[in-house]
Design a protein around this nucleic acid. Structure first.
Length: 939
RNA sequence: GCGGACGUGGCGUAAUGGUAGCCGCGCUGGCCUUAGGAGCCAGUGGUUUCGGCCGUGUGGGUUCGAGUCCCACCGUCCGCACCA
């Protein structure tokens, strides 16, 4: 019987769908396992072969766990909001919802074709009002909470208000944008607007005038992870710094918990390091410097407290609030011009020019350790958003300060014994401190003779004790800007009451995205939602007015921003647990059962975006008591990108003649990308190529060995390179099972690798071989004969290997193990072997396995079979025990391969004198020998 | 600059510190076929006087034994980057 994969795959896919084979319910009698793929953004291009890599791997794991008896939650959905659909809408006037739904339908079709075991009854779409209701709900909760730095959790903002009413900011333990100081009286005297503005300093979701990444090309602000080297990640448009009033999430408050959580989860160390880098914890000290002739103090942050004796200047960031205060009248013009100049530059320009510019303010700071006066400058190399936006310049031990000092002629004073600072600074935190204080100088603090690390600690202690400053931990991670001036996203559940941002009552949710007639900003520069004629004024406002029982003549404007892409993807894994619940994001019961994602699969590109935001979002929900697990994703695997393998033809310049790759060096040629569908194993289908374009219809070819061989290169998979491999075609030619098996066989799952169809025949051949075992001609050939020892050994070796490999996500070696097993079994058609083998194959190639399972006489799905039990007894190596003694002293039992004679062993051991010497007098438990050498001696 | 990962045949890759190159592709030879982009069998790191010898980026080290562990260097890739 021929292996008719098309018929088999169609048959079972229909059956699984009809019978809802992969539906899952909470079942307390079974252990749960939650296996999740990062849900895709449904782009217009459909899936290419790179997408399913992770889906197939997780599908294998999910099916394996199910066979092991786990209740497996394995859902799929769509991250449906996004820029491409909106840009398409702007171009064509087509509603983004329409294109998005079409793309989703296409994705679904492609996903179904691969035979993935999702429970589609749990599908979620982020653009679905029933879904984003809970995104808006979480936002309201964040607005109504602050982060208590002592309790290390979010608490109701009402608690904080109570504190302010009684004590002012005295004793307040709340993560805030700025340090504020006021008394209870001052607070109580504030009007509603002032109170609202003040509370924004602590709310977890807050609106504030901050420096944001403004991208004129996209017409919206962006979060830090959406900007790379001064360009927008999407589109590559320049991004500039602007002060704007925008919503933000206080993710910085969760910095330490984000770091601590990393210790408890099973992610790769490189991904953890990437997140640690992004969070950027650094321990140091804040030190206060008095300003000469004034009553104020300026605070700087440093990790090198040991270098206080080498300070020769101070630098402020151009955006620092101190700049205005400290600039003396005679420097005003110069400073103003400098600040204006810096403002004009884009982020990219500021970073790319490594020149150290700056101007003096005319003020001086007094070094609290030495009494020395040092000039205060403004320079763009200091960033406003980090630390206090002011630094102490220590040229000898900081390379940036060094360059600045060289340029402007500041003193460079080495503080480390033997450090040569004549050419460059010595930044390393090592060596013995000297000149601290320098000879003849008096100071209460003396660091001389200490190591740098000791000196840092001593200075920190000193600073804290004397009240000159405090020990301080700084994080680089910034709060996430949360509003976007776009159409296709979640609307904010916010309206403005006398200019005060106010949350829509929860019972009014969801605030649905309104229809607009155009997707561009309004003529007055409002975001696209400003074009909506209906929602703000009628429906929603009526709802709000009714619910808040305010004078219904009043009309409140709604917030016209939408939420960023990461909003909808931050808690979707919780929603899958209970996707149709209209009363809660997730029921207590469902959350208690499913808890968290056991295995999460997705691309590394989300390392500092989604994987940070959803961890913060989850922690917030934990603080609220809605979620229970501090870390949402226990084990995470990043599948590597699949690159394209482009093919070229070589046109002889100025002709329409094409030269085969092996001969191209003999001509002056120009390589041209050719559609890879015309190429098989690098051999060009000349007829297809000629029909591709009129330009090629009368092309001439110079062949080698009668064939036209194409050149190739590994490039990103993209339409313009003509190298996109569509899984549909592979499924059509080889079947879904071959596609699945081949994608796993390609190499380690985490690794980036080019898609290369060269080996696909190999795995297809394997499936045909397996199929052939079931058949003798057109009749079933399965027999009931007992298996031999050798066959059982092969079987159990395979059971062991496949189980281990799936657990370790080493899918490529698992595929090899199947091939080895089949090679060893030859034409074994015994039920006792084929049946367990079929179960082992099920996670990898479910269609053919299901068919084989039924051919073996079963009537229920193979998904409900049990994973074969490993019987170690069959795995024992063939060996004989042989007592051997040397010189009457060393005596041991040897475990030898049966093929080896006693004489050979003695020869081998005796030849190795050093080994013998070591063994003398010792008691040896076991010596393992392979022909020619000792491989293991156990004493 | 800081942090991390990696370097093995013609190619993708495999090796709990224990016979390096499993499995697949490709290639060579044979069988079978009207035919082969089908199937089956055998071979396939280099070198060799057929005993061996040499081989995992380079150079050292630890070990009875190193692709694997340690040190230095070279190279490739990734993340962060005027973060004080």
């Amino acid at each position: 019987m021929e292996y008719n994969f098309r018929a088999i795959e169609q048959k079972w896919q229909e059956t699984w769908k009809r019978e809802k084979t992969y539906r899952v319910e909470t079942d307390k009698s079974k252990k749960k396992c939650y296996v999740l793929d990062m849900f895709p953004y449904p782009s217009g291009a459909g899936l290419h072969v790179g997408h399913p890599l992770g889906y197939i791997a997780s599908d294998i794991y999910a099916r394996y766990k199910r066979l092991q008896g786990f209740n497996v939650l394995h859902p799929m959905g769509y991250d449906a909001y996004g820029l491409p659909a909106e840009q398409y809408a702007i171009k064509t006037g087509q509603h983004p919802e329409k294109t998005t739904m079409e793309n989703i339908a296409r994705y679904r079709e492609q996903l179904d074709m691969i035979g993935l075991c999702y429970d589609w009854d749990r599908e979620v779409k982020t653009c679905d009002p029933d879904y984003y209701k809970w995104t808006q709900w979480a936002f309201i909760k964040m607005f109504n909470h602050y982060y208590d730095t002592k309790a290390c959790k979010a608490k109701p903002i009402a608690d904080l208000e109570k504190h302010l009413e009684s004590y002012g900011t005295e004793g307040l333990t709340a993560a805030g944008s700025k340090e504020l100081f006021f008394t209870a009286e001052e607070w109580n005297a504030m009007d509603v607007k002032a109170k609202s503005d003040t509370l924004m300093n602590w709310r977890i979701a807050y609106k504030a005038e901050t420096m944001v990444n403004w991208c004129p090309g996209l017409g919206t602000v962006l979060a830090n992870d959406e900007v790379s080297e001064g360009l927008s990640v999407r589109g590559g448009y320049p991004v500039e710094q602007r002060k704007m009033s925008q919503w933000s999430l206080r993710v910085s408050a969760y910095a330490q918990r984000l770091l601590d959580g990393l210790e408890t989860i099973d992610w790769t160390s490189s991904l953890k390091d990437t997140q640690r880098n992004w969070i950027g914890r650094s321990e140091g000290a804040e030190i206060k410097y008095k300003i000469k002739g004034r009553d104020e103090e300026i605070t700087i942050f440093t990790t090198r407290a040991d270098t206080v004796f080498g300070v020769s200047f101070m630098v402020l960031a151009p955006e620092s609030e101190w700049v205005k205060k400290l600039t003396t009248p005679e420097h005003e013009a110069e400073v103003a011009e400098y600040v204006a100049e810096t403002k004009k530059k884009t982020e990219l320009e500021r970073k790319s020019q490594h020149n150290f510019t700056g101007v003096a303010t005319g003020s001086y700071a007094i070094n609290p350790f030495t009494g020395e006066e040092v000039p205060i400058w403004v320079a763009e190399y200091v960033i406003a958003g980090y630390g206090t936006g002011a630094v102490m310049g220590v040229p000898a031990h900081d390379s940036r300060d060094y360059e600045f000092a060289k340029k402007f002629g500041f003193k460079i004073k080495s503080l480390i014994e033997g450090a040569d600072v004549s050419e460059h600074s010595v930044d390393a935190k090592e060596g013995i401190v000297t000149n601290s204080p320098a000879e003849g100088l008096e100071s209460e603090l003396n660091l001389n003779g200490l190591t740098v690390k000791e000196a840092i600690e001593k200075t920190k202690r000193f600073v804290a004790e004397k009240g000159i400053g405090q020990v301080k931990v700084n994080y680089r991670i910034r709060d996430a800007i949360f509003s976007r001036q776009r159409y296709w996203g979640e609307p904010f559940p916010v309206y403005y009451k006398q200019g005060i941002p106010t949350m829509v009552p929860e019972e009014c949710l969801p605030i649905e995205l309104p229809q607009v007639d155009k997707y561009l900003p309004t003529e007055t520069g409002e975001p696209p939602l400003g074009n909506a004629k209906v929602w703000a004024w009628d429906e929603v406002n009526k709802k709000i007015v009714e619910n808040t029982k305010i004078d219904n003549q009043t009309v409140f404007p709604l917030d016209l921003n939408t939420m960023p892409g990461f909003a909808g993807s931050s808690a979707y894994y919780l929603r899958y647990m209970d996707p149709r619940n209209n009363d809660a994001l997730v029921s207590q019961e469902a959350d208690e059962y499913w808890q968290c994602v056991d295995l999460y699969l997705g691309g590394i590109e989300h390392a500092t975006g989604h994987l940070i935001y959803s961890r913060v979002w989850n922690k917030f929900l934990v603080d609220l008591g809605v979620a229970r697990e501090e870390e949402p994703f226990h084990k995470l695997i990043n599948q590597g990108m699949i690159q394209g393998r482009s093919n070229f033809v070589y046109r002889v310049k100025g002709t329409n003649t094409y030269v085969s790759a092996g001969l191209k060096d003999q001509y002056d040629v120009q390589p041209i990308h050719v559609l890879i569908d015309f190429v098989k194993n690098d051999v060009l289908d000349i007829e297809a190529f000629k029909k591709w374009s009129p330009e090629y219809s009368d092309a001439e070819f110079v062949l080698e060995d009668g064939k036209y061989v194409c050149g190739w290169a590994v490039e990103k998979m993209s339409k313009s390179m003509y190298n996109v491999v569509n899984p549909d075609n592979v499924v059509k030619d080889y079947g879904a099972d071959t596609l699945r098996l081949y994608e796993m066989f390609l190499g380690p799952i985490e690794q980036a690798k080019p898609w290369d169809t060269k080996g696909i025949d190999g795995v297809h051949r394997f499936l045909r071989k397996f199929w052939a075992l079931l058949w003798d001609g057109d009749t079933l050939a399965i027999n009931e004969e007992p298996a031999t020892q050798a066959e059982l050994k092969t079987l159990h070796k395979t059971i062991k290997k496949i189980g281990e490999d799936i657990e370790n996500f080493s899918m490529n070696t698992a595929v090899s193990a199947f091939m080895i097993a089949l090679n060893e079994l030859k034409v074994c058609r015994k039920r006792s072997i084929l049946e367990p083998l079929t179960i082992l194959l099920t996670p990898f190639v479910p269609h053919i396995a299901e068919e084989a399972w039924h051919l073996l006489g079963h009537t229920t799905t193979v998904c409900d079979a049990s994973w074969p039990v490993l019987e170690e007894q069959y795995l024992v190596e063939d060996s004989v025990q042989m007592p051997i003694s040397f010189n009457g002293k060393v005596r041991f039992n040897m475990e030898l391969p049966s093929a080896m004679s006693k004489e050979n062993v003695e020869k081998t051991v005796l030849a190795d004198e050093r080994t013998l010497k070591q063994l003398e007098g010792k008691s040896i438990k076991k010596v393992i020998v392979v022909p020619g050498r000792i491989v293991n001696i156990v004493c």
